[in-house]
Design a protein around this nucleic acid. Sequence first.
DNA 1: GAGTGGTCTAGACCACCTA
DNA 2: AGGTGGTCTAGACCACTCC
Lengths: 257, 257
Amino acid sequence: MSDEVEDRRPLSRRIADELRKEIEDGRHAPGAKLPSQRKLAERFGAVRNTVDEALKILAQEGLVIAEHGRGVFVRVKQPLIRLGSDRYSPKYRESGLSPFLVECAKQGKVGKFEVLGIERIKPDKELAEQLKVSDKTKSVVRRENVFYADADPVYRVTTWIPWSIAQGTGLLQPEVPHQYGIHGIFEDKGHVMTRINDEITARMPTPDEVSYLNLSPGVPVIEVMHTSIDQDGEPYEVTRFVMRADMNGLSYNVPVE
Amino acid sequence: MSDEVEDRRPLSRRIADELRKEIEDGRHAPGAKLPSQRKLAERFGAVRNTVDEALKILAQEGLVIAEHGRGVFVRVKQPLIRLGSDRYSPKYRESGLSPFLVECAKQGKVGKFEVLGIERIKPDKELAEQLKVSDKTKSVVRRENVFYADADPVYRVTTWIPWSIAQGTGLLQPEVPHQYGIHGIFEDKGHVMTRINDEITARMPTPDEVSYLNLSPGVPVIEVMHTSIDQDGEPYEVTRFVMRADMNGLSYNVPVE
DNA sequence: GAGTGGTCTAGACCACCTA
DNA sequence: AGGTGGTCTAGACCACTCC
């Protein structure tokens, strides 16, 4: 009583639509295994290839995930780690807590991060302009970190600091030599964070990002370009966050000006 | 000097990698047409199916876009429309400008929006909690809009307003009867926007969103759940934005508290 | 009509997981 | 060993675009 009206949409789409409906109706619970591709092929009167195509559609929508040799499973939605607009608030520095670790703890996970690399570099034109430094010399220090929640890589963070500020502070070492972290150093250098500017975009990950964030198909990334602005309205640090969108969200609770 | 080491990665991936490199190197300019699938198949010694697979990988990354009967083209990156944290600033209301129209104009485009529907509804539990209204009665008005830049649908906006506020204001009509728009009405009703709370996530679009935002493969959506908070710290309006990530970005320039 | 992408069939071999 | 997904070949027909 269903196919008799001759649906002109491709078979793989129809299969995907049917399975999507079943998932949304709860006929396949989150985490449950779908029937094998061979069984689905038989059920829908299609060849396995076509079923695989249908499942790829659902995988790209983030609905299912295929595991080689095991089966295809309904994806379980993760609770999101929320990076807030208050993440730089002095209250965190004074309490000794990190917003990231707090969020992980809320979910019963252990947060940690690794330093991937530190380098003094010549900035590209755009970055030089943002930081108001020269693009002809090695005027910037770049620090690269990855953050983990338990074993999952959650986001990658790149920070750029003018050499004029970083010089002599130990920011070229992996361990930041300040009790209040990197922002403690900036304050000692006379830059009090007064405003932040966050530019937010989302896109599909590059192959590099897929491998180092261990991303499944159908998971976009959120990219945040953050600039810290001091009491004189001057930028003194730029940070880029690349976050997997299936585990992260942003939250801005701010006054209207 | 390339394939002799016996690359064990799938052929379709290798083809995708090679084409990606060529695109990134500029050997295929943005907007340019790639060789046909049949020609690529010949070049790589693969069957057309495999080439199609490779191109789908690139399409999903947002690098190329296939046009039926015409060819496969390197995708042209659009300039982003930036929705800012200042989008509710009084300065816009007073100047009579809309941040969205200003952003469109910057790109030489004409912005417009349509009212899709207005309804008085019973809110779900979560929304009722956010707006501090009952979830047992039709305590909320929902307004649904689409925004366009020229002919492209750019984002869909759903606004929920407590009936206690909307009652008698004309908010059930498509045309908002106030010189300063919907937020003018809220102010007349005694709710001055003092803070906003924006919760931001990104994900792949649902099939519905694909069709009404006219999305190509490989384009995620950004979802913003916005709450307006008045002088008493009380929420009085919730709005959800679903924006196509290839044409939109967000921008928060805010004080550190 | 010629060329392009979209899709499907039929069958095969492989890699991976569980037992 | 047997089941699962991952991938590829070979060939076909269709729908769409452009000339």
